[in-house]
Simulated assay, not measured.
Amino acid sequence: MRFKSWSERRQYSKKKRQEKHLQRPTLPDGTKLITFPIQDGDGDCNGQNSKKEWIMNPNGKSYVCILHEYVQHALKKQPTYKFTELENAATPYAAAVSINDMQYGLGYGTSKKQAKSEAARATLELLIPEMRSKITADSKTGGSSASKAQDQDLSFFDEIKIEDPRVAEFCTKTTEPSPHDILLTCLQRNFGLGEMKISYKGHTLKHQKNEFTMTVGKHTATVICKNKRDGKQRASQAILQALHPHITSWGSLLRLYGNRSAKTFKEKKLEEQEITLLQSKAAVNSPNFAILDKLKLELKKLKEKRDAIKPIGEFTPYDNEHLPTLSSSNLKDVDL
């Protein structure tokens, strides 16, 4: 096109840009995008030092789809699921999500698909704090008031980083377990009793400061602290961050290993009452088969727990004098 002056050309170009901007596609109303930094393969977050980010639209997607999209793009990992069958008529299936050999969310349901979805939902609440508001909005009718109250209690810790030096003080004031207690619970659940040994080492520095070093397996953390007690908690926070590089807030660790992750006193009391009620089912001059069945079930669970930590074989040393020798005559008798 030809123009009489430069001003006409500028006006025409400006008008075309405005028309192009109006024709640009827009997202529907109510769409909430989630932006999170991309981590490398070792779990290091590049959100502060790098501009690598991933934008995800969770609307219209299942919890399993959102979890896989987040883990694959942001963490460069692949989630795995472990299914178990429970002797419970209401929720006979359970699923657990593991990322980098660390267990995160648990889910229960009437089918494996539902258990998988619930496990993915619980994992998303731990990995993406922004998803918790969407999940809560989606389950307004299904969630109980007690669980909502517990989530509100821990919302304060969602804004606190795992290695924040104020974590131990906040946990003491809110009667939450200390970072060292959280670390012990984490090691017991993921590695078993006695599998991971914790070693401590500290020495005094100048200006009334101390250096405290904690080693757990292949992870080592060294912190500068006021005293041994403070160093123990600070080092535990650093080890927990190394074990869970995909979690950023202390609130997620409390949901994973805190008091609410284990059975409450009320739940234990209900289990005791169930056993007490079985005594009323006994008949005259005959054994109580209800209690015997309950005992058989508990012994079966105990056997499965012991078999899970049982060694696969025994090591028997031999002397060189008693070792059998192989020759061409007896080689054919050896079972290769």
Results as ranks from 00 to 15, higher is better:
153 D>R: 15
80 T>I: 09
118 E>V: 11
302 L>P: 00
205 L>S: 05
260 R>F: 11
271 E>C: 13
39 Q>D: 05
311 P>G: 01
244 H>R: 14
150 Q>F: 05
57 N>G: 08
299 L>F: 03
206 K>I: 00
276 T>I: 13
107 G>L: 14
273 Q>A: 14
138 D>S: 07
128 I>M: 07
128 I>F: 05
49 N>M: 09
308 A>F: 12
268 K>R: 12
89 A>P: 00
248 T>N: 09
170 F>V: 04
96 A>K: 11
291 I>T: 06
33 L>S: 05
84 T>R: 14
324 P>V: 09
177 P>Q: 15
68 H>M: 06
288 N>K: 05
243 L>K: 12
24 R>Y: 11
304 E>Q: 15
316 T>G: 06
318 Y>G: 00
150 Q>Y: 07
264 T>Y: 01
302 L>Q: 06
80 T>V: 04
191 F>K: 14
58 P>R: 02
238 A>D: 01
10 R>A: 06
255 R>C: 04
310 K>W: 12
336 L>R: 07
211 E>L: 01
164 D>G: 02
4 K>W: 12
37 P>A: 08
318 Y>K: 12
96 A>F: 03
194 G>K: 05
265 F>W: 07
26 T>F: 09
327 S>E: 08
163 E>M: 01
122 A>H: 03
169 E>I: 13
74 A>D: 02
79 P>K: 15
140 K>G: 01
79 P>E: 03
252 S>E: 04
90 A>Q: 09
316 T>V: 10
324 P>K: 13
274 E>M: 09
